[in-house]
Write a protein that binds this DNA or RNA. Structure first.
Lengths: 165, 165
DNA sequence: GATGAAACGATTACTCA
DNA sequence: TGAGTAATCGTTTCATC
């Protein structure tokens, strides 16, 4: 198992051998596989698999293991993206906005982006009526929001959590 | 444990009791907790936890368990959103575009959306140069793309996979 | 990186309310 | 029907090579 780190001031990343890459791919596809199953797929001993995983966890490469749930079964069938422009961009406003938006459970993702708008939000709710509620009572009740522009998801073509290394 | 399904033509969703909601929240936060740990947090027996989880898996509420990896450690520090407009919207073009885009490993998410553009893509690569490469050699080599508009992520304010029920 | 033993958790059958 | 107890089985973990 050969690792080395490349450090360039602000960030550092690992270099992975072929086995680690395959292991990460397998775990990102299904983390409930036993080390025995993984050892078969990787042609390794159970212990070797175990140690590689522990190392990847310790290095912070694997940050967490989670259950993914089907949004249709959770009555969250409505997905929208909201562009947001702030009125002003003082430190205060920005920090306050970011904190409040991050606390909204309907907001799955929030990014500060380049371009015409300041932020892009991914919002998940049950239906259009719930989205209207969210906009009126939660999002636009945050102060300092200048304008918003919403796009509704008609169809989810692809959605993965797996990063290919 | 009381479940019932609400069916409205095209979709159906479960109604969850308070314990299931908490259980789903816990598993979405960390799926490596043992049933014993979960049983403590939920004031239930290990078996009761086990059976609730199995039921949620069988119903398809829990669709998968995955490892999440830190993109910084994987040298994938550059995140962008791409708007895409197709030249034409014939069935053929749409199906072909969607299939080809879904096959690109840089594309984490792809949505057919309302508004000025047809699609919104979330793209993850190592840096701006890799993004340029991706645009020139992969994305725009897909036929039928009319125009694109890219937004670069300056800062990730929030990113979660957990849906709150 | 492999082997094998000890520890631990998941799973199932059984029991009780 | 729904939850708890206890035995079994398989996996994780770790010391040793």
């Amino acid at each position: 198992m050969s690792y080395f780190c490349v450090s360039l001031e602000k960030f550092s990343f690992m270099n992975f051998d072929a086995i680690d890459k395959k292991l990460l791919k397998l775990l990102q596809a299904n983390s409930k596989q036993t080390n025995k199953e993984l050892s078969n797929k990787l042609n390794l001993s159970v212990t070797a698999v175990y140690e590689r995983i522990k190392k990847l966890e310790k290095e912070g490469v694997i940050s967490n293991y989670v259950a993914l749930i089907q949004k249709e079964k959770a009555n969250k069938n409505f997905l929208a993206f909201c562009h947001i422009k702030l009125v002003q961009h003082t430190q205060d406003y920005v920090i306050k906005f970011e904190r409040e938006v991050a606390n909204l459970e309907e907001v799955m993702e929030c990014y500060h982006i380049s371009g015409d708008y300041d932020y892009l939000l991914k919002v998940i709710v049950s239906d259009m009526e719930a989205f209207r509620e969210f906009m009126v009572n939660k999002l636009t009740s945050i102060n300092h929001i200048g304008s918003t522009h919403s796009m509704f998801v008609i169809n989810e073509v692809k959605h993965t959590t797996a990063i290919m290394i």
